[in-house]
Nucleic acid binder design. Structure first.
Lengths: 213, 213
DNA sequence: TGACTTAGTGTCGTCAATACACGAACATGC
DNA sequence: GCATGTTCGTGTATTGACGACACTAAGTCA
């Protein structure tokens, strides 16, 4: 029996919610759309799946093309398939989230995007399409996974103080943590190892840690 | 700027791993393919997304059409997008899992499927496409979510004994549980309430419980 | 050199999870 | 009807995890 699939194929795209910490606050990367629809509106970076490309690859490529940011760890967290979510034609959105250390970042908007910018998650502009909903879901997933700590390393430089790690944890979960209990938890997880160096600020230096082998 | 999307659209399909308990063992519902490719091979039920249909709806509809089983609670757990995973054309698979009580089941194969059958997850046939991989991932996700108990109700009749609930828990996690500790856990979760009735077997009757309001 | 600020540590109480053994209730067979 | 067998159902003691709590240490800056 020959294959006949009588329905039109939808377009398939990825959208990526990239988070980082800036001045202790959780920020998300948005682009200003350079094309209709929603010309001039802010949106999550993303774009269409190409032939011979897996969805994960598509997400990484689109993010790099549109913002100059290369994220090697992308987590799929949901699909968005409302038939009218894109006014042009039917587009299935495959949503990813990523975490990045802010010292790795150099934003470069591409042709598709007029500009790329960080926004604190508590102070967001109106978003194009259903991206507000996608971002809301991304934040939910992020908060629920923060307790495993290890993803948080991606938000920090390679070497970090425990206070920085706690700050990342608090920014992602939205809850304050007890300093001593937090350190006990980190120690029991065994996912960091101390270095011989210290971060020098304006007060007592803090020991630097790194992700355990 | 007019919208032009120069790449061909892939087909989008859903595949569903439906689990139930039969004689205490976890079983998965498979269909025998009634069309090429993989004619005669066993596969997860599933099919193509239609216009004006959300992915969740597609999964429920395809399952019902192909097997006669209606699952109202479908959980998306991943996408499968290897470019060559379907020999006909590019097909993105959106994968779901569902749990059902075996007393709700009356299997009816449709035209697309020669027959539908339950297989113990420990004794599976060769599967079409990349469905072995999809099923493997479904089992991982299922095991990791069992600890919240509440999804397990779907595997059981409306009223069940605690021994049945524990059996479902053990079948899904693959680990044995201590009877008293399991009951304490269930009590502390507060997700079941006792009824005044008892299940009569060949020994001491067991109290029947139901999902808490 | 003194004041300020952040870094870093130990203890106790509570609660959750683990391990463990026995009496209760009913069905069945003699 | 009575003895036997099987599953149902419960309480306690121990352990480890988690949360609350206050102080000393080390360096900067004025």
């Amino acid at each position: 029996m020959p294959f006949t699939y009588e329905y039109p194929h939808p377009a398939v795209a990825t959208d990526i919610a990239v988070f980082t910490l800036r001045r202790g606050a959780l920020n998300v990367l948005l682009i200003e759309r350079g094309a209709a629809p929603y010309l001039g509106a802010w949106a999550l970076p993303g774009g269409f799946l190409q032939p011979d490309e897996e969805l994960d690859e598509c997400a990484r490529r689109e993010l790099l093309e549109e913002t100059g940011v290369d994220a090697d760890l992308l987590l799929h967290f949901g699909n968005f398939s409302a038939p009218d979510r894109d006014p042009r034609e039917r587009v299935i959105s495959v949503a990813y989230l990523a975490l990045l250390a802010s010292d790795e970042l150099r934003l470069e908007a591409s042709t598709d995007a007029a500009q790329a910018r960080w926004f604190a998650v508590g102070d967001l502009p109106e978003l194009a399409f259903d991206h507000a909903e996608i971002l809301r879901r991304a934040l939910e997933v992020l908060g629920s996974r923060a307790r495993t700590i290890s993803p948080l390393f991606a938000l920090l430089p390679a070497r970090f103080t425990l206070s920085q790690l706690q700050g990342a944890y608090e920014a992602v979960t939205g809850e304050e943590a007890e300093k001593r209990n937090f350190r006990k938890m980190v120690a029991s997880l065994g996912c960091v190892s101390e270095t011989d160096d210290f971060a020098h600020g304006s007060h007592r230096p803090a020991r630097l840690y790194e992700a355990a082998s």
